[in-house]
Amino acid sequence: MARHVIAKVDELEVGKSKLVKVAGRDIALFNVKGEFFAIANRCPHEGADLCRGQVVGLAESDEPGKYRMTRHGELVRCPWHGWEFDIRTGKSWCDPARTRVKSFDVSVAKGGALAEGPYQAETFPVSIDEDYVIVEI
């Protein structure tokens, strides 16, 4: 398990996603209302890039003809066949037990703090004053 610096906090707007390649893996990084989440990028179905999917809310209903949209911006719809994945957990909505993508622990830290720990900043230099997104793999 190592901690990797994968992005600057301000480079990913709320509601957006980004593909990062780290430790030989493709990871889809999402900014959900200011919180960062990372899931494996490849859809378990046919391998589409989840980082390219539409970020959506959860459509629910109490009875036919009644619609409710909750959890705005917390799901990603696969860009191909539209299966929905919970960005927080990587679980699919339709089959959470069996169809899921790996989710990774993400944290945010100041550049200054990073200099002290065993972090791996593979892709770009870290500056002391800025905030960074860290993923544990």
Partner: peptide, 12 residues
């Protein structure tokens, strides 16, 4: 009957 849906084949 159930079966896990995962892609374990390598990307080519």
């Amino acid at each position: 009957m159930t079966e896990t849906q995962t892609l374990e084949r390598p990307v080519e």
